[in-house]
Amino acid sequence: MATGGRRGAAAAPLLVAVAALLLGAAGHLYPGEVCPGMDIRNNLTRLHELENCSVIEGHLQILLMFKTRPEDFRDLSFPKLIMITDYLLLFRVYGLESLKDLFPNLTVIRGSRLFFNYALVIFEMVHLKELGLYNLMNITRGSVRIEKNNELCYLATIDWSRILDSVEDNYIVLNKDDNEECGDICPGTAKGKTNCPATVINGQFVERCWTHSHCQKVCPTICKSHGCTAEGLCCHSECLGNCSQPDDPTKCVACRNFYLDGRCVETCPPPYYHFQDWRCVNFSFCQDLHHKCKNSRRQGCHQYVIHNNKCIPECPSGYTMNSSNLLCTPCLGPCPKVCHLLEGEKTIDSVTSAQELRGCTVINGSLIINIRGGNNLAAELEANLGLIEEISGYLKIRRSYALVSLSFFRKLRLIRGETLEIGNYSFYALDNQNLRQLWDWSKHNLTITQGKLFFHYNPKLCLSEIHKMEEVSGTKGRQERNDIALKTNGDQASCENELLKFSYIRTSFDKI
């Protein structure tokens, strides 16, 4: 039985969820670079991206490699990797027998973001014989899940209580170790020597080791999670996991709180800001991140802002960003909400898709409305799209047979046209069989910064309504002859009103 693990408890099935942008060198404390989270699957090609990484700022997932063999891993080693800020997950990587050479110096898994409450997941690794993470000293947050690894031993010899604050939620089941077939031998045991430290858990006094050649490092209890030197002297209180010299914040392997210019500090002093819960960055760093993602459509890219001495992905609820200094300031009234469309555009074809934009005031991208039916549609669209004030790209209304009016965009005031449909149009209306009105132009103002209007096959939309939009939106004169079809717009509506004058002759039985 794995020490510190839980057996036999019912657990939810383990679901495996399925960018080499360097964020800056980590400095003297770390020998390499800070790398983003990685999802490495199918083959070993991307694994080489770990070569210079000291910190993975995010998670590391290595999974679904069915053609790899043990010899493929023999020359692979990433000794610079010290810390993973989120979680480490391995799933069905064939041929991998140990992690001792792959990650010989991995010391800390912070667990800032977890995989279903777990910071370390080893699942269905069919050839893994031992973990071998002999320098792993601290899992700051989260638990361990090690399950269905039929060859995995050296679990009962690990004292997880020396690595985690609590072992109650560890789930370590259905491994070879369960069948008591392992016969784990710690260093020196074969020669009758006791080389590794022994600890007591559940009444068992057991030597602690990761492999037959690597003991588990056990520091004096007084050192807590700070770690200790090879001689057993406690590291500085700002260290986490390990250090090369005692009581020196510049000799830590990793930091308990924050890293700044080669030393570990309790908090980031001005003019620095907390970033990702582990390091200090200056304003320029946060500003660069903001600008890199301002026009990016890459998933996970955030326009970072500053709030409460932190550089964070977005302002919290009730705050909006001051564009001059990136500071989050309290909103006066309802907060603006910028919604970034991942692929640059979004099609609204149902109430469900409209709900995804609920509360958005600025759309960074283009909207395509293609709704053919739905219950209580006008009210639903207004509830979900009615706060949109600005669209950076274009607005396209296409084959939306259920629409009679666009009044559900009740606050839309600006279409920038930074991206144009077919390279020309910022407003595009095609084949809307029941569209009769755009907006009530006596109450609604709309500016279209650039781009043209396109109207074709809107049989109940009168040309007068379209011409009014040209005047109000500032697009009059931009359109070419064929942009607004004269014969297919309003051709099934009563669009022309003329005053009919009647004269009559009164007659009676005795007068003409």
Rank of each mutant, 00 (worst) to 15 (best):
H28F: 13
L29S: 07
Y30R: 01
G32L: 12
E33W: 11
E33Q: 10
P36R: 13
G37N: 14
M38P: 01
R41W: 10
N42Y: 12
N42R: 06
N43K: 09
T45R: 15
H48S: 10
H48T: 09
E49N: 08
E49F: 06
E51H: 13
E51C: 15
N52A: 08
I56L: 07
H59C: 12
H59F: 03
H59N: 08
Q61A: 03
Q61N: 04
I62A: 01
L63Q: 07
M65F: 10
K67R: 13
K67V: 13
T68A: 12
T68I: 03
P70K: 09
E71A: 13
E71P: 08
D75T: 07
K80I: 05
L90K: 00
L90M: 15
F91N: 14
R92A: 14
R92Q: 07
G95I: 03
G95T: 01
L96F: 02
S98F: 02
K100V: 08
L102Y: 01
N105S: 11
N105Y: 05
L106Q: 00
T107K: 14
V108I: 15
V108H: 11
I109V: 10
I109N: 00
F115A: 13
F115M: 04
Y118W: 09
Y118L: 03
A119N: 01
L120E: 00
M125Q: 05
E130K: 12
E130Q: 09
E130I: 08
G132D: 03
N135S: 08
L136M: 01
M137T: 09
M137S: 09
I139Y: 01
T140D: 12
T140L: 05
R141Y: 06
N149F: 02
N150Y: 05
N150P: 13
T157H: 14
I158F: 07
W160S: 01
R162H: 11
I163D: 00
L164P: 01
S166V: 12
D169L: 07
D169K: 11
D169S: 05
D169Q: 13
N170D: 08
Y171T: 09
I172L: 15
D177T: 13
D177V: 05
D178N: 14
D178I: 09
D178G: 15
N179D: 05
E181A: 12
C182P: 13
I185R: 05
I185W: 15
I185D: 07
C186V: 03
P187L: 12
G188Q: 10
T189W: 07
T189A: 12
K191E: 05
K191C: 02
K191N: 14
G192H: 14
K193S: 05
K193L: 06
C196L: 13
A198M: 08
V200M: 11
I201K: 07
N202P: 09
G203M: 10
Q204Y: 04
F205S: 14
F205I: 06
W210S: 08
T211Y: 06
H212F: 11
S213V: 10
H214L: 09
H214Y: 13
C215F: 11
C215P: 13
V218E: 10
C219V: 04
S225Q: 07
S225E: 03
S225H: 12
G227I: 05
G227W: 08
C228K: 03
T229E: 06
A230Q: 15
E231P: 13
E231T: 09
L233K: 09
C235M: 00
S237L: 07
E238I: 01
G241D: 02
N242S: 11
C243A: 00
S244N: 07
Q245E: 14
Q245K: 08
P246A: 14
P246C: 08
P249K: 03
T250S: 08
K251N: 05
K251I: 03
C252Q: 00
R256D: 05
N257M: 03
N257F: 05
N257R: 11
F258L: 07
Y259C: 14
Y259R: 03
Y259P: 01
D261P: 04
R263A: 11
C264F: 01
C264H: 00
V265N: 02
T267P: 01
T267I: 03
P269I: 08
P271Y: 14
Y272V: 02
Y272H: 04
Y273R: 04
Y273S: 05
H274S: 11
F275E: 00
D277L: 05
R279F: 13
C280K: 01
N282C: 02
F283N: 09
F283T: 09
S284C: 02
F285Y: 03
C286A: 11
H290R: 03
R297M: 09
R297Y: 02
Q299K: 15
G300T: 10
Y304F: 15
I306G: 08
I306S: 02
N308Q: 12
N308H: 10
C311R: 05
I312Q: 04
C315L: 04
C315P: 04
P316D: 09
P316M: 04
P316W: 02
S317Q: 15
T320K: 03
S323L: 11
L326Q: 12
L327D: 15
T329R: 12
T329A: 07
C331G: 10
L332S: 01
C335Y: 04
C335G: 05
C335N: 08
C335H: 09
P336S: 06
P336R: 07
